[in-house]
Design a protein around this nucleic acid. Sequence first.
RNA 1: GGAGAGAUGGCAGAGCGGUUGAAUGCACCGGUCUUGAAAACCGGCAAGGGGUCAAACCCUUCCAGGGUUCGAAUCCCUGUCUCUCCGCCA
Length: 425
Amino acid sequence: MLDPQLLRNNPDDVKKAMQKHGADLDLDFFNQLETQRKEIQIRTQNLQNERNKRSKSIGIAKAKGEDIQPLLDSVSQLGDDLKAAEVELQGILSELHDIQLSLPNVLAEEVPDGKDEDDNIELRTWGNIPDYDFDVKDHVDLGQSLAGINFELGAKIAGSRFVTLTGPLARLQRALTQFMLDMHTDQHGYQETYVPYLVNKESLLGTGQLPKFEEDLFKMANDSPYYLIPTAEVPVTNLVRDEIIAADDMPLKYVAHTPCFRSEAGAYGRDVRGMIRQHQFEKVELVQIVKASDSEQAHEALTHHAESILQALNLPYRLMLLCSGDTGFSSSKTYDLEVWLPGQNTYREISSCSNFRDFQARRLKARWRNPETGKPELVHTINGSGLAVGRTLIAVMENYQQADGSIKVPDALQPYMGKLTSISL
RNA sequence: GGAGAGAUGGCAGAGCGGUUGAAUGCACCGGUCUUGAAAACCGGCAAGGGGUCAAACCCUUCCAGGGUUCGAAUCCCUGUCUCUCCGCCA
């Protein structure tokens, strides 16, 4: 959510910023609502003031034992007027609130203009793309020949975009998860966190998935109020909803491993082959709650933390700065990490690291108390995948494949694999 | 699932339907005292919104949503959550 003051005082600037982020703000409509709001709010508050004063005087008169009836009579009309004004005000406020909830974040200055992922900017690459002296397979073929990945079983049990893992490959995914969690807790100072996988509407409003992106979510059937989380970002960031955090506790750094559930409603036909795009996948998520003054630095640091996993696994990747058209609704600036996938001969997203600045915090009412002023200030929220575990599994399989179809276990994972050095049939 | 109790400021905890946005304590901030600190004492200290150059001032908020009333933290209804006891259970 944007600062309402900004919206009121600089509507033209906001409109421009919204257009850069692919949204439109109907200024005439907004200004008209604002004018009405102001007028009705003042009128309502005057009436409330009048009622309060009269009620108070009735109380005083009664305490003195005076006759109250004339006072009561003089108040009768007031109640109706007030009720009408309050209803009217409520309507306008909720309309304005809806507009505010539907507006995306203002993008950081350095975010380049662009339409889609083709306009993203490559900031740097890491690692060497290997040459293979044999025909490389993708993870689907590798997984099938190793009898460890089975899409048919996934489809039978659930449907399309589901998968089963078996044996060493299932363990490899667990190893990756453990490895990532250990690295982030032991070396990067994150606190391991366990959170619900089902969340309520308030949480999704807080982080910005609702109200605009309900179709991307799985909702529980019947009258259950729960949604499956599309990312740990939702429950973890909502840890600080409605909280005022002590200065000494800042920054907060959380890491959580959760499954993630996405409807992929807009992705028919995309990535239908393989494990790239599933309804259910594992992810290790990094979340930082920081002071406004620290957020850019924290965003860089968090991105490095995600990168360090790829480096430790010796997986080639590149760092992308997302353009305006590809940056998410709530984000002001997003870096994507794209890992090299030999089977697809291309880079694919494996982590997305975003700085939301105060956008989520305002929806969440997440604040910290600044000792210098004694006042609560909105926090900045930052998160990123560290990493998407399912895709990391794919990357390891494809990058560590051998001519005979076996997969070498990366050194960093061997302690988690019972010292297994190679996966073969 | 059954029976009961509860939800109030950063925390703890009072609060006969009437000048209560809310006693008190802790924490926190400023000051006096002290070589310094502690203690003691004095003062300040909720959030959000409107308003103003800045103030003054005004409105809202005591879990949430409805209701009763001139007036609700206080009474009524619904929901959520927490605690205690019983039952069941990974």
